[in-house]
């Protein structure tokens, strides 16, 4: 912060948002068309993804350059912090919708289908003998036979991995505050490596789940009734966020290598670190609610 502006920095025009808009149009049109079985869908999707990546590089590139040039003052820094905080708040609510679906299904839907509350006749007439216990793929046993995912083995190892990555990023954070560059780079590198390892193991776990029981798998798919739906929706969206978080960590790691952050001025680092902690806590919630309780 050797030289900061006394004025709030306001860019005069920027091409990146409109590029992002075009990317979204191509991407959304592509996915929707692909779901409808239209041949153009895939191409549009691919084009959208490419433009989106181009936009992300361009936009973040500009912001990083402006930051390094010292154009941002304290007030701009605060705007970024607040923006990040409220973005994460919206992410929390997004996950809340899926957790809500899990709780509602377990605490209300299944007991009711099993005849609890005033639903005796629903149960008696529609699905006599169905017991609303968890886990369940419903009275019609949608998706066929499956085994639930237990907490031991990969899930427990994955939890240990993600928690360790939380420890390493905290050490890196301490190192950054203390101005210890070597430690910072080492432990930040470890963090994203652990993140990628987590994603890899999660993919292995999914493959294991998707195999038929006869083949030594679990026979558990997205289509395995409400249990499969909530399991894959929650862990899948979390996996997406881990991938995103790991990508951001890698970007930040390169910025650390270039020496972009100082013990006093490192919002980029703190924002990503906080995001990583958020992803980590969501996993812990998943581990508790999806695998244990």
């Amino acid at each position: 912060m050797a030289h900061t502006s006394d004025r709030y920095y306001i860019p005069h025009g920027s091409p990146w948002p409109i590029v992002g808009t075009v990317a979204l149009l191509l991407l959304m049109f592509g996915v929707a068309s692909a779901l409808n079985g239209a041949a153009i869908g895939k191409f549009s999707m691919l084009a959208g993804a490419v433009v989106l990546l181009f936009m992300l590089f361009g936009w973040f590139g500009v912001v990083i350059k402006e930051s390094v040039d010292g154009i941002y003052n304290q007030q701009v820094d605060r705007s970024f912090r607040m923006g990040m905080a409220w973005f994460i708040a919206s992410e929390v609510m997004f996950f809340a919708a899926f957790f809500g679906a899990l709780f509602y299904a377990r605490q209300i839907v299944l007991p009711w289908l099993g005849g609890e509350s005033n639903n005796f006749f629903t149960n008696f007439l529609l699905w006599p003998g169905f017991e609303g216990t968890w886990p369940s793929n419903g009275p019609a046993e949608i998706g066929g036979e499956y085994k639930p995912m237990g907490p031991w083995g990969l899930p427990a190892i994955n939890t240990a991995i993600l928690l360790s990555s939380g420890v390493t990023i905290t050490i890196a954070h301490h190192a950054l505050k203390a101005g210890n560059r070597g430690m910072l780079i080492l432990f930040l590198g470890l963090t994203w490596a652990l993140g990628l390892l987590f994603v890899g193991l999660q993919a292995t776990e999914y493959a294991h789940a998707y195999h038929d029981i006869a083949d030594g798998g679990l026979g558990l798919t997205l289509g395995s009734g409400i249990y499969g739906s909530t399991f894959f929706m929650l862990t899948g969206f979390h996996g997406l966020h881990v991938t995103l978080g790991a990508t951001m960590l890698i970007v930040i790691w390169f910025r650390c290598l270039k020496g972009h952050f100082t013990p006093e001025n490192h919002f980029g680092f703190e924002g990503v670190a906080w995001y990583w902690h958020f992803v980590d806590v969501v996993w812990l919630g998943l581990f508790i609610f999806v695998y244990w309780l």
Partner: peptide
């Protein structure tokens, strides 16, 4: 998160 915003690092 609160301190992230309040104390500005």
């Amino acid at each position: 998160m609160f301190y992230l915003v309040r104390d500005e690092g």
